[in-house]
Nucleic acid binder design. Structure first.
Lengths: 359, 339
RNA sequence: GCCCGUCUAGCUCAGUGGUAGAGCGCCAGACUUUUAAUCUGGUGGUCGAGGGUUCGAUCCCCUCGGUGGGCG
């Protein structure tokens, strides 16, 4: 599929990426034409401050001294934000861009014409450059659509589409469900195929996706399609509407027919990410297909529904090792004299129930 | 006891501790988990004529082997109590593991597996092996065609790891355990008999480090990783992280990200918020009759019910609260990609 | 002979999903039935002893002692 996408301020024709390797970085040479050049120097992607200043003797480093000792160094005590420190005017900058000046060269011009750049600390200079790079030296990476990448993209843009399931929670969910290459998974989810794709990525043997919405099967699978799986992988997935569990003939697949007709406890993993209906009711509807000692993992944004499910499993002695947990994941900025947690990303992380089925 | 399971995609697949069996019956040599309660989970290996014992009495292996399914309840010989017999999953394996070192737990393991994007067929390097908690999870993710090369500088621990991995059905087909100090000697590895490289430059998909001075291992890691291969480092202290991160940047790793993941556990119970109007008045002794009388306020008729009856009448509200004993800081996980 | 538990308050306990929770005692107040009862409130805790292990954060290990149970 050929199309153009908008990336920051550049229009890029994706056709020129065909034949390129996943993982490659590109710089937009000209934001108008969308002309690309490959990034060949990794240091263009990393923080120069991190590479230059040793942690060990950071306090002895002249440039770091400026940061921690205001008397010796440069700080913003005399700075007045009058928006006049850049001597190049908007028109002049636009003119330079029109002349075809590269992003890198343009940034050098901005630095030379900035009254305040030299007064900044090294750390602040790095931050200034990073901001300008985002504007004038647009780079992007060609990534393979994996569960991790898709989960990250949707978490940032449309978290509701994947039920608020963030990467750290998805990681725990898959591990708690004991997903591996031999898994037979029964899946009750509304993540539009994100989870189905994540399971195929783990090369699981079989997936039975039971749909509860409406009166007949209607797939909401838009994210699954973004994985671009080949048909032989997709064959491992069976989609079934819950009403079919009571019917005598459900599918052309004879193995699945046998499982459902004889109520075989066939599946050794159960994953649920579903807020539309009563979770206890949904579980009860499919529990006769779950093998004893199977791993159960349920994600929910709300703890109350999981507490109800836990109470049900516990009082009816349907499962052991039942646990409800919440993950708090923080990313850290790691730099000399500047190591700290980023703004916390654990606002609404959701909750995970894990358990092992028993009889 | 390793059995041939089947041939799939042209590859002979062998049973391991997590393998699926449709009959679900426990066999001799299986490693299983005895679940007594949430904080009492034990791993045992099924051997004929042996007996497992706990406070409830004796549980003879002979009554389990070829007779019971995984996930069933079993009473002790004295009928004083019962336990559940479970098939290990990765979480239960980790929490019932015989620890020889400090180990990685499920929340961190999950992040490592997912962010390294491990999948069947991957060639993975790990050091140190430690108690093998992460190793087993890595192998679970990369079998049947993948391979783990794990390095441990303590001779006894590397030997114990081999014994464990063999018992669990991963050794030798899915893992090499090498006794080596990787900080000084790196990861390059040759087959002793053929002289061919098992681990050569640019051949590894993912690598995990859990070492005292991780920064010293980063250049070695860069050497064996493929282009686009992922590195993960685990360190408890931020100073270790700083040195490692800096070395990654200098070596030519990009997308260097450091995370800390904490898990908060929740307990749930029923709590009855009664009407204050239903309180029972204290017993009153009057001079006139000397009799004890009960007087209830309001029009309630529950005042005569005892605590147990009240509990049965209304279990109360289902409430949840964070457990105080949840695990705190374990370590920082840093991920990076080779350019 | 072997196996598995358990040991925290002055004392005694704590559930197959409740080990920083209690009871007794002790102290104070109220009351009346006054060498004291009852009620109310309060008091009291860092985990049997020693050693070891993990780069490292302990749901880690060993030895010894008290105590309880099981198997043969």
């Amino acid at each position: 599929m050929l199309r153009k996408i908008k990336h920051f301020k550049a229009m890029v024709d994706l056709g020129q990426l065909i034949g390129k390797e996943y993982g490659q970085f590109f710089e937009v040479r000209d934001s108008k034409s969308g002309e690309l050049i490959e990034v060949t120097d990794v240091h263009q992607l990393t923080n120069q401050f991190l590479e230059d200043v040793d942690f060990g003797d950071a306090e002895e480093n002249e440039e770091v001294k400026e940061i921690i000792d205001p008397v010796a160094g440069r700080d913003n005590r005399d700075y007045v934000d009058d928006n006049k420190s850049q001597k190049l005017s908007h028109e002049e900058i636009e003119a330079l861009k029109k002349q075809g000046m590269s992003g890198n060269e343009l940034i050098q011009q901005l630095v030379q014409n900035s009254e305040t750049f030299s007064k900044r600390t090294k750390f602040s200079q790095e931050k200034y450059l990073r901001k300008k790079k985002q504007k004038y030296q647009i780079t992007f990476q060609l990534k393979k659509p994996t569960a991790l990448e898709l989960c990250n993209v949707y978490s940032q843009t449309q978290p509701a589409k994947i039920m608020g399931l963030r990467a750290d929670s998805l990681a725990l969910l898959l591990n708690m469900a004991n997903i591996n290459q031999e898994s037979r998974v029964i899946l009750l989810d509304k993540t539009k195929g994100l989870l189905t794709g994540a399971l195929i990525e783990k090369d699981v043997r079989e997936i039975l996706h039971v749909e509860f919405t409406g009166h007949q099967l209607k797939l909401q699978n838009e994210i699954f399609l973004e994985y671009n799986y080949k048909p032989d992988k997709v064959k491992r997935i069976q989609y079934l509407h819950h009403t079919n569990l009571d019917q005598s003939i459900v599918q052309s697949d004879s193995l699945l027919n046998a499982i459902i007709q004889t109520k075989t406890k066939h599946y050794n993993s159960m994953i649920m990410v579903h807020e539309d209906f009563n979770q206890v009711e949904m579980y009860n509807h499919i529990e006769h297909l779950i093998q004893p000692s199977a791993s159960i993992a349920v994600f929910s944004l709300y703890i109350q529904s999981l507490a109800e499910l836990k109470d049900h499993l516990l009082t009816n002695k349907k499962a052991v090792n039942i646990k409800i947990e919440e993950l708090w994941t923080r990313e850290y900025q790691v730099l000399p004299m500047r190591t700290h947690p980023n703004m916390n990303m654990h606002g609404a992380s959701g909750f995970i129930l894990s358990a092992v089925k028993v009889e | 006891m390793v059995k041939l399971l089947e041939i799939r995609d042209g590859v002979k697949t062998k049973n391991n501790v997590f393998s699926y069996t449709s009959d679900n019956i426990i066999r001799e040599g299986d490693t299983l988990v005895v679940f007594e309660s949430g904080d009492n989970i034990k791993q045992i290996v099924m051997k004929r004529n042996q007996t497992f014992q706990n406070k409830f009495g004796a549980f003879p292996h002979n009554d389990i082997i070829d007779k019971l399914q995984f996930g069933t309840k079993m009473y002790s010989k004295t009928m004083m109590g019962w336990v559940y017999i479970l098939r290990p999953n990765s979480h239960i394996y980790t929490s019932s593991l015989a620890q020889r070192t400090q180990i990685l737990y499920t929340p961190d393991i999950s992040q490592v597996l997912f962010r390294l994007e491990l999948r069947p067929g991957f060639r993975v390097v790990e050091s140190g092996t430690g108690s093998g908690s992460l190793s087993v999870s890595i192998m679970k993710a990369i079998v049947p065609t993948g391979h783990l090369f794990t390095y441990e500088f303590n001779q006894v621990r590397s030997q114990r790891a081999i014994e464990d991995f063999q018992r669990l059905g991963f050794y030798p087909q899915n893992v090499h355990v090498t006794h080596r100090d990787v900080l000084n000697n790196g990861f390059l590895l040759k087959d002793e008999s053929t002289g061919e490289f098992l681990v050569n430059e640019n051949t590894i998909d993912a690598i995990f480090l859990d070492l005292p001075s991780p920064e010293k291992a980063v250049p070695h890691a860069y050497k064996v990783l493929k282009r686009g291969g992922k590195l993960c480092n685990f360190s408890p202290c931020i100073e270790q992280v700083q040195k490692a991160v800096q070395e990654m940047a200098r070596q030519g790793f990009y997308e260097i990200k450091t995370y800390e993941t904490l898990s908060k556990d929740f307990s749930s119970s029923h709590h009855n918020y009664q009407s204050f109007k239903q309180q029972v008045k204290p017993t009153i002794v009057t001079e006139e009759n000397g009799n004890k009388q009960q007087d209830n306020l309001g029009d309630t008729n529950t005042g005569n019910l005892n605590k147990r009856q009240l509990k049965q009448k209304d279990k109360g509200m289902l409430v949840t609260a964070p457990k105080i004993e949840s695990r705190g800081h374990t370590g920082f996980l840093t991920f990076a990609i080779k350019f």
